[in-house]
Simulated assay, not measured.
Amino acid sequence: MKKMSPVLALLLLAGSGGCAGQTAAAPATSAFPGAGAGPVNVVPDGYVGRFRVVATVLENEHHGPQLCTALAESMPPQCGGPDISGWVWDGVKHESASRTKWGAYLIIGTFDGRTFKLTEPPKVNDGSLNPEPRTPDFTSPCPAPAGGWRPVDQATTTAAALQAAESMVTADPDFAGLWIDQKLPPNDLATPASDPAKLVLNVRFTKDLALHEAQIRTVWGGALCLSGAERSLAELAEIQQELANEPLMTHTSTDIVTGTVEAGVIMATQARQRELDAMYGPGVVNLVGALEPID
């Protein structure tokens, strides 16, 4: 069986459960479109106050209670992070199996870079305490043409043509990202959300936009928006890889719309953000701290 391209597979998936009025597919790469909102929970220089975090706390035979922002779905689950001092399981609702105890909580305390110290009893998180997810923005940066977005050649506005365009652009060294912008009338059940005629293909390149547009038009006749980027996707991926050894890293991701890299850490400091700005350029790498300073 021929393997479906990531763009087409995710485009079909988006059509199965998107918001009324707009559906969109994630890009073909591991990059995440339009979520980059700059640094988050950055701790000011000299901060000595408390932090708040919604996280899993887990203890097993290898370590005591630790704060985890991600959990391996095994039984029992596994995770790791900073040690938590002052934690007592007695009287705290939790699960247990095979000498492992864990649960999801809202916890408040201080952090010295190594150990989180509780300053008040934890609150069990039933899901209602989870932070609001950041909503990706799939809006095309190009101004809509006269008459609105529509195909220029219906014969090459097909799923196969979309896949051909994807294969063409992702192999280009100037390629900086690809995503789908698709807006549907509310409650339009008659039009499949995966209809290539109802979407705008967005592609970013670091240079020669006119040349790349002409090349794409040899295979794709649907709506098309090309935009410029300072760094290629390969360059952003290289930065992302360089951040893999960042202390207390929780995740990394690339935002192809903003051309930035997000580095999730347990505690994001202003000093480290300045270092990253000096190393890669202001705003290229954004720290996102799991711990929220509250004082």
Rank of each mutant, 00 (worst) to 15 (best):
K2V: 01
K3V: 13
S5C: 01
V7S: 02
L12A: 09
G15L: 01
G17W: 06
G18M: 02
G21Y: 01
T29N: 13
A31M: 07
A37S: 13
G38Q: 07
G38C: 09
V43C: 08
D45T: 15
G49Q: 12
V54F: 09
P65R: 06
T69E: 09
A70S: 13
S74M: 11
G80A: 14
S85A: 14
V88D: 12
D90W: 04
D90I: 08
K93N: 10
R99P: 04
K101S: 12
K101P: 10
L106E: 10
I108D: 15
G109V: 08
G113R: 11
R114H: 15
T115F: 07
P121D: 04
G127H: 13
S128G: 13
P131D: 11
E132V: 15
R134D: 14
G148W: 11
W149D: 03
V152I: 07
V152T: 10
A155R: 10
T158N: 02
A159D: 00
A161C: 03
Q163S: 05
A164P: 01
V169A: 11
P173R: 04
P173L: 04
F175N: 06
I180G: 00
Q182C: 04
Q182D: 02
K183R: 12
P186S: 04
T191V: 05
P196W: 00
V200S: 01
L201I: 00
V203C: 06
T206W: 02
K207C: 05
H212V: 07
Q215G: 07
I216A: 04
I216D: 01
T218M: 10
T218W: 02
W220G: 05
G221E: 02
L224V: 03
A229N: 01
A234N: 08
L236M: 12
L236S: 09
I239P: 10
Q240V: 02
Q241C: 03
N245M: 14
E246T: 14
M249Y: 08
T250P: 06
G259F: 06
V261F: 11
V265L: 09
R272T: 11
R274N: 12
D277T: 07
N286Y: 09
L287H: 07
I294E: 11
